[in-house]
């Protein structure tokens, strides 16, 4: 449509500047530079190290337990990641996850609903609470930190009022079945679900319009708005999605426990916050928004699960565990940083 336009007399200097971007060249080079690769390396390293140095790590029993807690950690990480995309954060995901699983538990126990329907309604509640977060943020213009700080109390408090903190513990057997089955003797089906959900997230960000809208809004809300993207819709959807993912994590946790328990994510659901941020951040997501990696968040969550599990098997003294966890985390980010330096030297853009 622009044929016949006189060519711009451009100097070629700018062009050459960008062509030989990497000494390693091409996609492989970019992957070796990515934090995903660094994480993969660390996961393999930690896995191999624990496999060789502890007894019990390699046992099917332990691998099964590891896969099950990794499944939940992955979902918690993805939940937070879906909000980090928009440049915000959600402190209330723990509260949402608990609320959702409690509702599902109530439907199964008190209303005798079948498990699938109850879980579906629980997930819908998660989505609804996330949606509420998003709407408050969009309509008031307050920072998501403040809003979710308050709604964390409101959601959790509301749940406590309604349940008087009583768990729902006579759930139908088919509900907790997925948490007990073994695939190949050592893998929990929950991990398969988590990986499937992660694939759906990757699909969302790579191959759908709304996923791209979310990324654009997270990176630069004003530019996205002017490009005809509804920033408020994208932000609301990010929060709603975080709510649904948190609900899935909550339901998985109650499958594992065989009961929907108000305290399963700690007071106000705060126990989830650490893994929630660690996964995406290790995975290379930018806390200011607009850049995410689903694979990175998954690997980050797996790394944390492996380290947690492996440290328990090493006899470092019960109370020094947390110290070593901290040091390993520091080590992980430092190694990652060093790797970037090594690979990037000479071909930084």
């Amino acid at each position: 449509m622009l044929e016949g336009l006189p060519p711009a007399q451009g100097s070629d200097a700018t062009e050459t500047q960008y062509e030989n971007a990497g000494r390693l060249g091409g996609k492989l080079g970019r992957f070796l530079l990515s934090s995903e690769f660094g994480l993969l390396l660390l996961v393999v390293l930690a896995f191999a190290g624990f496999w060789l140095s502890t007894r019990g790590f390699s046992s099917p029993f332990n691998q099964f337990g590891l896969s099950r807690s990794a499944a939940v950690n992955i979902l918690i990480s993805l939940s937070m990641m879906s909000v980090i995309v928009s440049g915000g954060l959600d402190l209330s995901i723990g509260a949402i996850g608990v609320c959702a699983s409690i509702l599902a538990g109530w439907l199964m126990e008190a209303c005798r609903w079948p498990a699938p329907a109850s879980v579906a309604v629980g997930l819908a509640l998660g989505g609804l609470l996330g949606f509420a977060n998003g709407q408050i943020i969009v309509r008031t213009g307050m920072h998501s930190f403040v809003v979710t700080l308050a709604t964390m109390s409101v959601f959790f408090g509301g749940m406590i009022i309604l349940t008087t903190a009583k768990p729902f513990d006579s759930l139908p057997d088919d509900f907790s079945l997925p948490a007990q089955q073994h695939l190949f003797g050592a893998v929990s089906p929950l991990l398969v679900y988590s990986v499937l959900i992660a694939c759906m997230m990757a699909y969302l960000y790579r191959l759908t319009a709304i996923g791209r809208d979310m990324l654009a809004v997270g990176a630069n809300a004003r530019a996205a708005l002017l490009s005809g993207i509804s920033a408020s819709r994208a932000v609301t959807l990010c929060h709603a999605m975080a709510g649904i993912l948190a609900a899935v994590a909550g339901v998985m946790l109650s499958m594992r426990n065989g009961a929907a328990i108000p305290s399963m994510a700690g007071n106000l659901g705060q126990d989830w916050l650490l893994p929630a941020f660690l996964g995406p951040v290790l995975g290379g997501a930018s806390l200011s928004g607009g850049r995410v990696s689903v694979l990175g968040a998954v690997l980050g969550a797996v790394l944390i699960s492996v380290i947690n599990n492996g440290l328990l098997l090493l006899h470092v003294g019960a109370f020094w565990l947390q110290f070593f966890l901290g040091m390993l985390l520091l080590g992980a980010v430092m190694i990652d940083k060093a790797r970037m330096r090594v690979f990037a030297s000479g071909d930084r853009r």
Binding site: F277, L278, V281, L282, F319, F323, G326, V333, K337
Partner: peptide
């Protein structure tokens, strides 16, 4: 660590959160 390593304070303090708490528990045995 934040200034020299060029890693966000969020990540650094998340890690030291665990480390300091670990020293605390290790010394006191809770």
């Amino acid at each position: 660590l934040t200034a020299r390593a060029g890693i966000s304070a969020f990540v650094i303090t998340l890690a030291t959160l665990a480390a300091y708490k670990g020293v605390n528990l290790g010394l006191t045995q809770a």
